[in-house]
């Protein structure tokens, strides 16, 4: 073989302060081949919506929506499913996928031998998770429009709303993943998201519960996401939505801070 070592080239690489977008680029390349798997995640909430729309809705009739206005049952549940899909997309991304890369593949250790920093990874991965959540929720809202479940122009605001949901859950999911030791611990993820999905005012207004349980349900982050999106898709604005948005924002910021600190401690021993 007459191959020589690679030639020396000059002026290679630059130092830019912010490069979290490189993580997106990485994930984009990796997901190009897996788009079917990602895309199939979109169907679950749609199946639920059909089930509610054609079946359960007829049993329930109208329910009282935000501000006590009666709305069809499907229109009531749809924004909740939209919030849940943003949650699920973000949580799957930052728990299962990240755990594999973190614990088994040591992908991040390699990345940190380049100019990338732990914060780039944390911000990049949370941002990507949020994107996946938003992908689900924004395609979902198209289904809602087609089914006539939202007529207000305010519904467009549900997309930035689901960005907040994705951010909050993606950040907390990433923080949680840094504490996970084995695959068994992922049962805890299901144990957290499943009750949230069922009891956050998704399928009926919280007032069917006794006041004490209502209070518990209101701590659920998904409840805040659901209420925020419901206000937008049903076209009823209310100052409490500001509280819901703030809750999600603060939750996301705390999660991101913990995730960043933990990743740094884990990867730079």
């Amino acid at each position: 073989m007459s191959v020589s070592a690679p030639s020396r080239i000059s002026g290679i690489g630059r130092l830019t302060p912010f490069r979290a977008q490189r993580i997106w680029e990485h994930n984009y390349i990796a997901y190009r081949r897996l788009w079917k798997v990602v895309f199939s995640g979109f169907f679950e909430p749609v199946f639920y919506l059909f089930s509610v729309g054609v079946g359960i809705g007829a049993l329930v009739g109208d329910v009282s929506g935000p501000g006590g206005v009666p709305v069809s049952y499907a229109a009531f549940v749809a924004p909740a499913l939209m919030a849940a899909s943003a949650m699920n997309g973000a949580v799957i991304e930052t728990t299962f996928n990240i755990f594999f890369k973190l614990r088994f593949q040591n992908v991040y250790e390699g990345i940190l031998t380049t100019p990338m920093q732990p914060a780039d990874i944390a911000i990049g991965e949370i941002g990507w998770a949020l994107l996946r959540g938003v992908l689900y929720s924004s395609t979902f809202i198209i289904v809602m429009v087609v089914m006539g479940l939202t007529t207000s122009w305010l519904a467009i605001l549900a997309i930035p709303g689901s960005v907040l949901v994705g951010f909050a859950f993606g950040a907390v999911g990433l923080a949680a993943t840094t504490y996970m030791r084995s695959w068994q611990d992922f049962d805890l993820v299901t144990l957290a998201t499943m009750p949230m999905f069922l009891f956050s005012g998704t399928f009926y207004p919280l007032d069917v519960y006794p006041p004490a349980i209502q209070l518990v349900a209101k701590i659920s982050p998904l409840y805040h996401g659901t209420e925020l999106l419901r206000g937008f898709t049903l076209g009823v604005l209310d100052w409490t939505m500001l509280v819901h948005a703030l809750f999600l924002l603060v939750m996301g910021l705390i999660g991101a801070a913990i995730a960043n600190r933990r990743l740094d401690a884990m990867l730079r021993k």
Partner: peptide, 17 residues
Amino acid sequence: ELTVSENLYIYGRYHDM
């Protein structure tokens, strides 16, 4: 998750090339 050349490519990107 990446191919051989993609593994090289993304490290180039991490170096902002």
